[in-house]
């Protein structure tokens, strides 16, 4: 199942620093939404507000509403919200103390699933979903950190899928990877679109153009332009957007 996200007048702060200003936007179901913008524009904060990771940082504050299928995320238990909205981080971060298969189902196990056959089956399922099964089927008991960078990142995506989220947030998931691994992850993200709503923060504009359906451009905490990716990259409406995507910034 996949869900849509609606953001209304979102404001976020780090201490005194106002990092998101009145952001309102909708992310469509079964679509890939890319968020682009220069460093420090608030794009990572934006997605971290969606799964309520922002507030785990000391001094961080949020105002406004985020609806997950019309359910106000900020009225719910953050732990259950985070199981419905998965996240993949910039650097691959498998748990160093766990094996490949333990990593794949770490979420389930930590959330209380004990049945070993259920866990083993789920591990296989999600590793297959990310195209890792054939590569690691003989290394399931090796540490997750022994895999290559691209494999680790796919393992992390598998780990997020195992919890069966509706939405997957990705924070520059390819920025630490080589071009071949990047392409594999992009293909994977595109496939995942069938079953999940995906929101991806990326520094790489070509990546946003390649895989996303809609693109949002954020600048200094403000949503400058948001629209179909093809339109945004062919004829942006805003001068700032144009200058940013054609590399004529500052």
């Amino acid at each position: 199942m996949s869900s849509e996200i609606e953001i209304e007048d979102l404001n976020a702060w780090f201490g005194e620093k106002h990092v998101l200003k009145d952001v309102s936007m909708e992310m469509e179901k079964n679509r890939i939404t890319a968020i682009i913008g220069p460093s420090g524009c608030g794009k990572t904060t934006l997605i971290r507000c969606i799964n309520r990771m922002h507030e785990t940082v000391p001094e961080a504050r949020v105002e406004g509403r985020i609806l997950l299928n019309e359910l106000d995320v900020y009225q719910e238990d953050p732990v259950s919200i985070r199981s419905r909205i998965g996240m993949v981080f910039q650097r691959p971060n498998p748990f160093p103390t766990m094996s490949v298969s333990e990593n794949a189902v770490a979420g389930l196990k930590l959330r209380g699933t004990r049945d070993r056959s259920v866990l083993a089956e789920k591990a296989k399922e999600v590793l297959m979903a990310v195209g890792l099964w054939d590569e690691v089927r003989n290394e399931l008991n090796k540490p997750g950190t022994s895999l290559s960078g691209g494999q680790q990142q796919r393992l992390c995506i598998a780990r997020a899928l195992a919890v069966e989220p509706e939405v997957i947030l990705m924070d520059e998931p390819c920025s630490a990877l080589d071009p071949v691994s990047t392409m594999r992850i992009e293909d994977l993200i595109y496939r995942l679109r069938e079953n999940y709503t995906i929101i991806i923060v990326t520094h790489n504009m070509q990546q946003a153009a390649r895989i996303s359906d809609r693109t949002a451009f954020l600048y200094m905490g403000e949503l400058i332009e948001y629209g179909p990716t093809k339109r945004l990259f062919e004829k942006p409406e805003n001068e700032l957007t144009e200058r940013y995507i054609s590399g004529r910034f500052g």
Partner: peptide, 18 residues
């Protein structure tokens, strides 16, 4: 590293279990 904590928290694992 903090990203280990974040990885667990983002999976919907309660803080104490993390």
């Amino acid at each position: 590293p903090n990203h280990i904590r974040e990885a667990a928290i983002a999976l919907g694992v309660p803080k104490w279990k993390t």
